[in-house]
Design a protein around this nucleic acid. Sequence first.
DNA 1: CAGGTC
DNA 2: TCTGG
Length: 437
Amino acid sequence: MLRSTARPLLNSTINARPSCREYHLIKHGSRPVRPGSLPNRVCSAGMATDCAGWHLLGTPREELRLEHTLPTGQSFRWRETGDDEYIGVIGQRVVQIRQLEDDVAWRIIGRAPQAAEAEDTAVLADYFNLSTPLADLVRTWSASCDHFARIQPYFQGARMLRQDPTETLFQFLCSSNNHISRIHGMVERLCSGWGTRLPLTRSDEYGGPAHHAFPTLDQLAAVSEADLRAAGFGYRARFVTGSVARLRALGGEAWLATLRAGPPDVAVAALCTLPGVGPKVAACAALFSLDAHALVPVDVHVLALATRHYLPALRGKALTPALHAQVQAAFVARFGAHAGWAHNTLFISELARYRGRVPGTTRAEEVLLARGSEVAEEVDAGPDACARVVGMDGSDASTGKGGRARRKRKGGAASVASSLVEEQMELAPTTPPQAAA
DNA sequence: CAGGTC
DNA sequence: TCTGG
């Protein structure tokens, strides 16, 4: 399942690293990690066990930052277990992973019996999509978009994962009309309730909860709608049971995997035939698991940033399938074949927890981040360098029809102004990007 | 009260 | 139409 047939698993950076070397720069950001909290040495696959099983991924910080990749909404299978450290499940393996100053260390702490140790390195490289050089792409995106260039240094290493298709589809079935925290719980209950338990191999060092593989389609077929409602799925319970049935009729996991080889629009169309799967969920599943690197899942936040920077004429419009397509086209026109990856960095920069991280953000943008795009002109009419319509014939864009005339916001300019003050006060002190130098 | 799909 | 924040 995790075996890649479409591309080589490793890049030269990974292969070229030393087999076993000392940790030199054991730091988190600017804080040194206390001695003894990390193993003395790390090893490549197959080395002796005195290295405590740790390996280096070989990814400098421009290529992978865990905090921008694991807890930012593309997977709900990771739990933060420490400062810049996570435990999660990749396929049949329980993985402990830790951010270092200019690399990432990992080790396997549990596995199914059939998960061979010899495959560990390849499985990790595949999951983290290491054959795609993020830093090179970032340079081209920064040249194409001033807004991207400005925010990107604060969100380095926001890498797209290459997750299992079935797992990804059901994770994002849960995501519709829902928030990250709740999705996390639903996915966890799905796995612990019906997935195969993965035995720990280092139980002496780990006292946390048990870990489970994501349930197979056959295991999911045994789950009733009532089970799922009891597990807190709400009306999505029927989406899950319905999609399980339809998926099995179509050929199960193997059929889903064939979508990787075909064009992205075919994958999206196929996914949209499943109950509970619309354009957004389909784009998530395709981008996060089916190698559809150009796809952009358009939710309300992505729509907001797109109208702000690329498609001002769409301001105030509803998120219809046609609009979804327009935003998708604008992203591809600007960012190219890996537009979905570029969108990922932009999406993260919009998350509430990162608000205020980019210094010099205009007052208008702060209001927009908090309130949506409708009030932009009331506060700051300054045009952004990116705010040009891209990849459209201009039929609707030039007229602005249906755009700013319809403001359905609650509260007028006065409330905007007062919220501005609140916003400014809430802003965190401007922290420089940790690796801008 | 936010948040995609039917 | 569900439920956590």
